[in-house]
Write a protein that binds this DNA or RNA. Sequence first.
DNA 1: CCAATTCATACTAAATTAATATGTTATCCT
DNA 2: AGGATAACATATTAATTTAGTATGAATTGG
Lengths: 136, 136
Amino acid sequence: MNISTRTEYALRALTELALNATDKPVSINDICKNQNLPVKYIEQLFRKLKQNNLVKSIHGAKGGYQLALDLNDISLKDIMNAVDENNIAPYCSGKPEDHAHCIGLPCGFKKLWDEINEHTENYFDSIKLDQIVARL
Amino acid sequence: MNISTRTEYALRALTELALNATDKPVSINDICKNQNLPVKYIEQLFRKLKQNNLVKSIHGAKGGYQLALDLNDISLKDIMNAVDENNIAPYCSGKPEDHAHCIGLPCGFKKLWDEINEHTENYFDSIKLDQIVARL
DNA sequence: CCAATTCATACTAAATTAATATGTTATCCT
DNA sequence: AGGATAACATATTAATTTAGTATGAATTGG
């Protein structure tokens, strides 16, 4: 199990917005210069972050991105869900492919995966951007 | 973030050993027949499980595998570590590639990832095979 | 109008994953 | 002794995912 680099990148990038206290938007270019990240890749991630209402954007010159929510209203779980669509343990439920090996219905393992999904989501949801930024 | 199918397969397979209460070993063939898994792939996983001392094997005809430890001494973490070598959040420490984007040393994000690694490892280590089997 | 910027889509190279293929070695059973 | 069974070992492969690049359109400030 591992946290994707997409999540790592998105988190790094979002902390740049968090650290920029002014109301001026920050451009992808500046973010990537500061955090040493690939511009075009981060652009893609920010579009997903925007679709998930974590950031808002301002078009054109002097444009860029801002956080759409308070620092303590954005969790690591939110970020992960935004850039990284797959579930933690998608087994034994949902799509047919996900219970390809199930025996019986409901499969005996379903409860386990459900519990793991719930615990893990709760945990990552408890980690908010403000705490992360405070400890940088 | 997601739990690998390797882990899911290995867990399914190990529960077959757990459910087989007799002292006779269970063959990969029987495991895979019962759990609907690909034989040769499971063979590979069992070699890793053996290297990690989770199972022991008996060679030749009538041979097969047995658990090497008590059910409550095998955790989901043990299984994950055996079949799936990558860490949860390898960022900002260890290999050079893993802190490719770090700024400063130690990188400000290191504590976060360390905490996440520790919490998550502890969590999966708290889930033992006996609990899993009991709820099948 | 021009530069800076978001927005959108398509493509690509590398890595990982989930197997399959082809054996060898060890042990039981007749 | 010999055949069947099953672990052990390694190489190969097909599909998918990942991490990025390429190309360009739409929007806005100066």
